[in-house]
Design a protein around this nucleic acid. Structure first.
Lengths: 218, 218
DNA sequence: ACTTATTTTTAGCCTTGTCTAAAAATAAAA
DNA sequence: TTTTATTTTTAGACAAGGCTAAAAATAAGT
């Protein structure tokens, strides 16, 4: 059984591993968790002793198989609760993160088994992120960033990279949500901005936005 | 905002106040919480400084109005989550306590407002205990213990005093649950035991059982 | 009323998880 | 390759919440 703090570290390292080649640095963990590097060192050493991380001083850290499975379990819970909050309690997708952040630490196998069933064994959370299965395995999808598309390509929005309220509300204002079909009408090489078509509407999309929206090309 | 430990103390003191005249003693709190009296003294003094308890050394403690409201809020959450677990996730009523014990500490007004609505604004939890409203007020019901009934009186089971798995499973084996109608066929003054009728079946009920089952006379 | 037993509090220590300040590695730059 | 900058670790401290052992109040028994 892991403490709240331990679970949060494992979860964060799991996420950081995904977009980092090699080990995860102490500072990057401290940044993500809004804590100090010295605190990170302490916890990383503790988790390494517990066999959750492999760690060499000054060389960064990586999850062990056990650590990755534990982290995936926390993320599974987080994402299932998000589905519950949106599908059943009718929260908006930009309101659920903080609450799921608490709910993910409830300890009960049986609870999650039943919640999963109750929700109809969903594969993705409300932001389009995949929900790991019981064993911590994640179906990997071949989604790409909107910014990787070129003129005239069509795609379906399947997720967001950034999950801040600001960004999600920005998308809502333009009626972009999971499942939205869109077409790239034009792309500016100068600043990476795009013009896209959504339904009957056309929007200007900044590079930053295009780099935070995942699409699946059809 | 209160810590998990603080909320648990307030909740426990709330419950102890109900069946105690005068202040709640340090030892009784320690017993209920499975902790040491010295730890209780520390926390009680801390909560008194925060205005949640009124406390005089060696004289026991009582909740202030603010303290009582906070405690009722925690209990409200606990009981709403129990309804969720039983009604929606199909847990059995003897399995939900530990989980609700964790869920009651999730901090989010909005979550509880929506959960309450989702569950249809229930007034009682699966054990028949009343759910405090938003302001911490509890509808008091005129339930009595089965042991207070006399021969030939009829009643409807509306709750249990003891909530251990053992007791709840014992009741289940006899098909006694919330809403069950029963009739006292006989009562033994010697040991307080009873014979009761439930449907077509007749049972022998010990004094201890009769003292832990709440009924409403009709 | 006085002695004994029980309850409650105090004092001091421990663990978890955090922090600051300073030291040690590593990386970058001249 | 030295020097400088950055990153990481260590050392020591702190707050929360718990514990043990001992002291102080209160309650009970004679």
């Amino acid at each position: 059984m892991f403490s709240l703090a331990e679970e949060n570290y494992l979860k964060t390292i799991y996420h950081l591993e995904q977009d980092t080649k090699g080990g995860v640095s102490t500072n990057s963990i401290a940044d993500k968790m809004d804590t100090k590097p010295s605190s990170v060192t302490d916890m990383v050493q503790k988790l390494a002793e517990k066999g959750m991380l492999s760690y060499k001083k000054y060389k960064g850290t990586t999850l062990t198989t056990k650590g990755r499975k534990t982290a995936a379990g926390v993320i599974r819970k987080h994402r299932l609760w998000e589905v519950f909050l949106v599908d059943k309690l009718k929260f908006h997708w930009d309101e659920v993160h903080e609450i799921a952040e608490q709910l993910e630490h409830i300890h009960s196998e049986e609870l999650i088994t039943r919640l999963d069933k109750y929700l109809g064994h969903p594969d993705f959370d409300p932001h389009g992120d995949p929900i790991p299965d019981k064993n911590g395995n994640v179906k990997k999808t071949e989604k790409k960033l909107l910014s990787e598309l070129t003129k005239k390509q069509k795609g379906v929005c399947v997720g967001v990279k950034e999950t801040s309220s600001e960004f999600l509300q920005y998308l809502d204002k333009r009626n972009i949500t999971i499942g939205t079909k869109l077409t790239v009408l034009g792309k500016e090489f100068f600043d990476g901005s795009m013009i896209i078509q959504v339904g009957r509407d056309q929007f200007f999309i900044s590079k930053k936005t295009a780099e935070n929206l995942y699409v699946q090309t059809t």
